[in-house]
Amino acid sequence: MTRVIVSIVLAIQDFYLLTGRAVRNVFRQPHYSDDIILQMDSIGVGSLLIVVLTGFFSGAVMTLQLARALARWGQQGQVGTAVSLTLVRELGPALTALMVAGRNSSGMASEIGSMKVTEQIDAMRALGTDPIQKLVTPRLIATCVVLPLLTVIADFVGMFGGYIVAVLLVDLNGRRYWSTAWQALEWNDLTQGLLKPFVFAFVVALVGCYYGLRASGGTQGVGRATTQAVVTASVLIFVLTFFLTRIFTSQLVSS
């Protein structure tokens, strides 16, 4: 039991050290801009299709459910409000981060993990390169830039999916859907809708890199690192969603 607690505490300590070094390297030479652009392409453009699909269908399914629920109180016209608030505040950031975690945290863990078990990370250090500067910091910067952008796209596509369902299946007025969706949004919603993906970007990039750098024991170890990265990143995203929402809602209440 004590050993388990010690290993958890050590793992958290290692994770914080990695975070500190990765962030410090953002302000330190050399900058590997080619790697940053490469990662932005891999994470951003590479994840675009799955993010669009997830966004579209989550907006669509929400409209179906909410239209039925709101009809009970004769408030079917407010579907746009409910869809846009839920998407911008919660589902857009969380679902996009989950998709990117599934695709990229695992990718980072397996790529860096393979380098670790074949001693390429050691070779890098032996040949004058800081692996955190070369591998972790570019992935962190790229994810921090790209994840909020992907979230904005997912939010919009989700509302569009809701609109299609509202007009074609639920028989609502399209113009009313858009106007209620637009009017419902306040600055606070946009702030938390953009701040959340920024925080999740740290989770997606650093958890993936952390498990990759810890990989040991050949290909089996790489597989284990990949699974652990996706599971940990996904769970952390859910936990952080709760706490971030709590912070924003308490701010609203106090103001």
């Binding site: 380098m115 074949t118 390429q120 050691d122 070779a123 250090r125 032996a126 004058g128």
Partner: peptide, 19 residues
């Protein structure tokens, strides 16, 4: 350590070339 390491050449097991 980077300065010292530049005076040392190392052949890793299996080579450890960047693939």
């Amino acid at each position: 350590l980077f300065d010292i390491r530049s005076k040392i050449g190392m052949l890793f097991q299996e080579g450890a070339l960047f693939d």
